[in-house]
Design a protein around this nucleic acid. Structure first.
Lengths: 150, 150
DNA sequence: AGGCATTAAATGCATTTGCATAGGATGCGT
DNA sequence: ACGCATCCTATGCAAATGCATTTAATGCCT
């Protein structure tokens, strides 16, 4: 059904002693790294470029495409947002003049999002900030303790 | 000021070709892993134990302590929530009868959170779910594409 | 053509979160 | 003892998110 990870001995021991398993430690590190970078990235993008992380990511994905446009459903596949959240992110980007939304002529249910010139410019400006924050924090040692016994 | 990571040649090339840098790839993987596990964990804890992830984490930290209690400010150090969000998580846990909140007698500004018997029980029940989800997804290959060119 | 399941996107609503602020307690300097 | 900066928690408020539902368009089957 699904793979067995670790062995019963280790599980039993950690349950008995209250020790923290390797998985939990790894998970907490992932959480800590994610929180650190997300926070820094959000602040940097917001203060420097008036963009939230979700908005930047959509711009980024579009900028990577040859024609800077795609159906919303396609963008959804590469962004970790619910369909409704993505719909609203794109609505915000549109009202900021960074993307356009046009009904797809082939499939009139779909909407094609396309980066405007201003959107492409903003993405390029923000890209440097984005790169710098990642370079600075992606591999840096974590500061915050993962558990109270540290 | 801050360390230079990578070299200008690589940066220039990726900027020109639109290639995705190693940092960005790593970051997207981190985001994808985080989203996948967070989503699964939240669903599993919610449907199985009526607990959100934030709530579970607070219970977990308290359960690891010998006396199952700590000042809120101490818990805050191991959880990635704003002070206000943590305050509300603890308020929810209290109204669910899983923790108690008592003003610290030594420092009457502080509040001591303490796991109730029911809280400890719930944490123990949920711990198995938590462990299983991590074991299943922490090292599993990622399904969702990280960029639109995949 | 008509009916029906399916798909795409938008919207109402409740929840969670963070920021800014307020309220209360502590401790230190004078 | 008084004043004042600091610390700890709670709360008002706005923004972002997910779920459920709605609206609209498509494709298929008969």
């Amino acid at each position: 059904m699904h793979a067995m990870v670790g062995d019963m001995t280790a599980t039993k021991v950690s349950a008995e002693t209250g020790e923290i398993s390797a998985d939990v430690r790894a998970w907490r590190e992932l959480l800590a790294r994610h929180a650190d970078i997300t926070c820094a990235l959000d602040r940097a993008l917001q203060t420097g470029h008036s963009l939230g992380m979700s908005e930047y990511e959509v711009l980024e994905r579009l900028a990577e495409l040859p024609d800077h446009s795609a159906k919303i459903a396609v963008v959804a596949k590469s962004v970790h947002l619910s369909q409704s959240a993505l719909s609203r992110v794109i609505a915000r980007l549109e009202s900021d003049g960074l993307v356009t939304r046009d009904v797809c002529t082939q499939d009139r249910r779909a909407v094609i999002v396309c980066l405007t010139d201003e959107g492409l410019l903003r993405q390029h400006e923000a890209r440097a900030t984005h790169r710098d924050v990642l370079a600075e924090r992606l591999h840096a040692p974590l500061v915050k303790g993962c558990d109270l016994t540290d």
